[in-house]
Design a protein around this nucleic acid. Structure first.
Lengths: 142, 142
DNA sequence: CAAAATTAATTTCCAATTTAAGTATATAGT
DNA sequence: ACTATATACTTAAATTGGAAATTAATTTTG
């Protein structure tokens, strides 16, 4: 069992948290110009393509716990960005749909997210970015 | 300006969040066996080497906002894991020290963190892990 | 087919986080 | 030296998040 040589920077969990925080704060700051958070963007991004996602599945994809998603969807319904519909065949399931208003907002958020992504890409270099993405994907699936 | 090809998995911010969540939840679960959280481990890890860290600097290193750190330190003082000391030369600064009791806890948490790190390392492969760490470090510094 | 078990989403209650404001100390400029 | 500005941490108020319990629908099983 190798010792971790006493440096927190040697733990993958810490390094990942550092890198994540950097990107997350940066994106959060950008989205705040529209009064929205990272999770709003994720939700709208998913719903814009995969319409009528079931709540539980949506929670997994957008990396939220079910109770937190329920509350965020409540607020987004109140603001008219999405709406809920109970599934016809299995009435336990709740499907979430994006509205016109929500889609309009999404397009703005997408521009901000794309801008951040391009900035990071340019600053870091395309080739290294692709290598990093590949490794992250493999870690996620491992 | 390249479009992001409509897939959330293509955004580095999302991929990083996914990878981070996986590692974080896993470590969190492990530390819960001692009733502690990831941030507790980070704080004790830093204080075990770099004694008397100034609060603001500690907050940066352990990736917390100052008010959140203040309250976590309050709780850790109440439990006898750390204590505070106002800096002699600049009385605005508060230095945080680990106690004997805190160090004893730290050793247990370190074992859990090391175990996770080794598990990920073995599952993912040492060589790829080193490559990933290098890239993450470069991203953090970029 | 009825009872038990499972699945899905939500609610409740409590603890933790965030934002903004506040307090205290230190530094800079005139 | 005195006022203005900046820095460091904490506090306060409002919001959010999480764990456990709840409600409801579906599926399994004896």
């Amino acid at each position: 069992m190798p010792r971790n040589d006493q440096q927190i920077e040697n733990y993958i969990a810490y390094l990942m948290a550092q890198a994540h925080r950097k990107l997350h704060l940066d994106l959060e700051k950008s989205l705040k110009s529209e009064g929205m958070q990272v999770e709003h963007w994720r939700i709208l991004e998913i719903l814009s393509e995969r319409k009528g996602q079931i709540a539980g599945n949506l929670a997994k994809i957008v990396l939220m716990n079910p109770p937190a998603l329920t509350k965020m969807i409540d607020r987004m319904v109140a603001n008219g960005y999405v709406h809920r519909l109970v599934d016809n065949v299995d009435q336990r399931k709740v499907r979430i749909f994006i509205t016109e208003h929500g889609y309009h907002l999404f397009l703005k958020l997408q521009n901000l997210a794309d801008a951040q992504n391009n900035t990071v890409n340019n600053r870091f270099g395309n080739k290294k970015m692709e290598k990093l993405k590949t490794l992250l994907n493999q870690l996620i699936l491992s």
